[in-house]
């Protein structure tokens, strides 16, 4: 499977990264080098093998469903590039 510049443009869009036209070619080359490298996994017989879901077999921890933390709106917006009255401010999204 080889990646062309059109695919790079599509993936960049999905990843929400603006890419300059002149960089598309270089990025396609780099992605193809990595995809070429991982191609060797096709040699491995994985029939009947379960995909790994957890590297150490542990049961998901449960805790009681109660509020243990909160009331920290000031802390949460403290690092925002733009905020007002404990809201994050973004460009208008609804006309």
């Amino acid at each position: 499977m080889s990646v062309d510049t059109e695919t790079v443009r599509r993936v960049a869009k999905l990843a929400r990264i603006a890419v300059e036209e002149e960089d598309l070619e270089r990025m396609a080359g780099e992605l193809n080098a990595i995809l070429g490298f991982v191609e060797q996994l096709n040699e491995v017989d994985v029939s009947g093998v379960e995909p790994m879901t957890s590297v150490i077999p542990i049961a998901m921890k449960m805790r009681s469903d109660e509020v243990t933390d909160g009331g920290k709106a000031d802390d949460i917006v403290a690092n925002a590039p733009q905020s007002g009255e404990n809201f994050f401010l973004v460009p208008k999204v609804v006309e």
Binding site: V11, L14, A15
Partner: peptide
């Protein structure tokens, strides 16, 4: 970009799922 590509529709099984099996 690589991560987005291997998880994108149509490629998940060929890449990510296979890699987790190899793991």
């Amino acid at each position: 970009m690589i991560g987005t590509y291997v998880l994108s529709a149509g490629y998940y099984d060929a890449y990510y799922l296979r890699a987790q099996k190899v793991r």
